[in-house]
Design a protein around this nucleic acid. Structure first.
Lengths: 133, 133
DNA sequence: CTTGACTCTGGACCCAGGTCCAGGGTGCAA
DNA sequence: TTGCACCCTGGACCTGGGTCCAGAGTCAAG
């Protein structure tokens, strides 16, 4: 079984341009070529492309994924796990930050009657004036 | 009291280039000028710039903020509140998404002993193989 | 053999939100 | 008057992750 770039992209659920972009950026090894110059792919490349797609879903950047692929090739389980843990930490940080924003906004909205004089609107006041928070 | 662009930027805690960028992009009105062409600012502009900075902290995009400023000028409290509520919804969505990612990663990490054969590493397996999740 | 679908390349462009630069003019203090 | 900090402009550049394009070549069905 052998795939054209279009077939590969379809199987993996990404765009053709994305496949070439990944190749250019070292996430996929340079593909084998036909005499015509057309790229050909096998099952390995499909697996790798799907790996990339899943890792992205889990919040890894392409940079992260490059490392992950290298560690995976070296079978370095400990460092794969450590990378996942770092990513988990990042995500926790982002969640915390969003929750901070969320509660700030929630407080403001709850305090705003949604009508009446605009200088009594806590949202506008919070944005306009000096404050501690 | 009157401020140069540098003074304004400093008071508001943003970069000079950012002030000019905001002016170019309609978040700040075109500044008054001295005969030399130097921009001059008053207290109003400082308030407005701080408004922008705070709104950004609360997760509003510059586009959002442009609307917010317009609504604020029109004293349209109801629509300000509605905009804040939409933004709250966005943020909730982002939190939910991150939590989904978080729990996926957490499960994988917890299942991974961090040593041993790489083909027994749940993280690599999850990324490499077909799966439901 | 023709036709339409596919692929090749390098490079430009997109989003947001700035940031930096060169080459010039200005303001003010010693 | 010199010197330094500040300001002006238009336009290029940055990050991340692609997406789109023109112009040319190729593949496969009918």
């Amino acid at each position: 079984m052998s795939l054209s770039i279009g077939g590969l992209a379809k199987q993996a659920g990404v765009a053709i341009d994305t496949v070439r972009y990944y190749e250019r950026n070292g996430l996929l090894a340079p593909a084998g070529r036909l005499a015509s110059g057309y790229r050909r792919y096998g099952a390995e490349e499909l697996k790798r492309l799907r790996f990339i797609r899943r890792a992205k879903v889990l919040g890894f950047t392409l940079d992260d994924i490059r490392s992950l692929l290298a560690l995976s090739a070296e079978r370095d389980v400990a460092r794969v796990r450590a990378a996942a843990q770092r990513k988990l930490g990042d995500i926790e940080l982002r969640i915390t930050e969003l929750e901070r924003i969320h509660s700030g906004l929630r407080t403001l909205i709850d305090a705003c009657p949604g009508h009446g004089r605009s200088d009594a609107c806590p949202i506008l006041n919070a944005l306009s004036q000096e404050q501690d928070a």
